[in-house]
Design a binder for these strands. Structure first.
Length: 286
DNA sequence: AGTTGCACCTGGCTGC
DNA sequence: TGCAGCCAGGTGCAAC
């Protein structure tokens, strides 16, 4: 599921429910997801109040009034659902509940359930002082929706890079939060081939080419549109309230192999780059 | 050092 | 209808 827009959508769904509430009980139904849960996970959380829910890259970060910060990653198939009091399970339903791995019972009577069939997600507790030095966060790139992200920033990141544009945009240590879908979409909007070398957007004096500036603008644009649409969702992804997102209907190349390109009428193709599918139009992406 | 490939796990879809 | 094979939004780490 979840690239930056989906994680942001989840954050916005959970924030009004969780912030200000206390974690009256935490249920952990298995010892691990992608990684083992932290030692004494439930005990360390129980009784704490959620002070803020932030996002960095594809991580959700719950600030608590205790020693630790709760970091959550949705992996490929993680989702949250919000249940009202009295244990009703309205939307996502029983079919999938074998993959409910964590539940937070809030002081407001609301229950937040984390479901993750593939278990590529994880939860970590990081002592507050160690947070920014933690391996999860000490090598993470620039936020593509932040003020500093522009052609100049892109040029600085891509200078000297021999890897492809596709690989460079996916590299979380350069830009944080882009995934396979939005990289394909942004490159199509910018008319840039995913195979082009990342450094080809940098002039010899280190300044950005026009294409670098354009790409930065269009990365931001596609992410903003997706966030505004409530994130996209494919297959098993559901928003926190269980409703499906709509941006998936707006994909211009992703998942559209053999379909005509909306811009030039050429055929959308599919190649494999570093083991992942890349969708692009050879007609107008150069 | 930088870059690439694979493993992790389950479910859904396709094609026989 | 059944089932084998393939594919999936992410990331860490091993191997070039």
């Amino acid at each position: 599921m979840p690239e930056l827009p989906e994680v942001e959508t989840v954050r916005r769904g959970l924030e009004p429910v969780m912030v200000g509430a206390r974690l009256d009980a935490v249920e952990q139904r298995r010892p691990d997801l992608r990684f083992p849960f932290p030692e004494r996970f439930t005990e360390r959380l129980t009784g704490l109040r959620v002070e803020a829910l932030r996002r960095r890259a594809k991580y959700l970060i719950a600030e608590l009034d205790g020693a630790d910060v709760l970091v959550m990653h949705l992996g490929m198939s993680g989702s949250f659902r919000i249940e009202q009091a009295r244990g009703t399970i309205p939307v996502a339903g029983a079919k999938n509940s074998q993959h409910d791995h964590v539940a937070f019972d809030l002081s407001t009577g609301v229950r937040i359930v984390y479901n993750d069939p593939r278990r590529f997600g994880f939860m970590q507790l990081i002592p507050r002082p160690e947070f920014s030095a933690h391996p999860l966060f000490n090598n993470i790139g620039i936020e593509p929706l932040g003020d500093e992200f522009d052609g100049q920033a892109l040029a600085k990141l891509f200078a000297g890079k021999t890897s492809s544009l596709k690989a460079a945009l996916l590299d979380q240590s350069l830009i944080a939060g882009l995934g396979n879908i939005y990289v394909c979409e942004a490159l199509h909007r910018a008319g840039l081939s995913p195979r082009r070398a990342a450094a080809s957007l940098v002039r010899s004096d280190g300044s950005p080419t026009k294409r670098a500036t354009l790409l930065a603008r269009l990365v931001r644009e596609v992410l903003e549109e997706a966030v505004a649409a409530g994130g996209s969702s494919l297959r098993d992804h559901r928003k926190t309230d269980g409703a499906l997102g709509y941006f998936q209907h707006s994909f211009r190349v992703y998942g559209r192999e053999h379909e005509p390109c909306a811009r030039c009428g050429g055929e959308v193709g599919r190649i494999t780059q570093s083991g992942r599918a890349t969708f692009y139009c050879g007609g107008c992406q150069r």
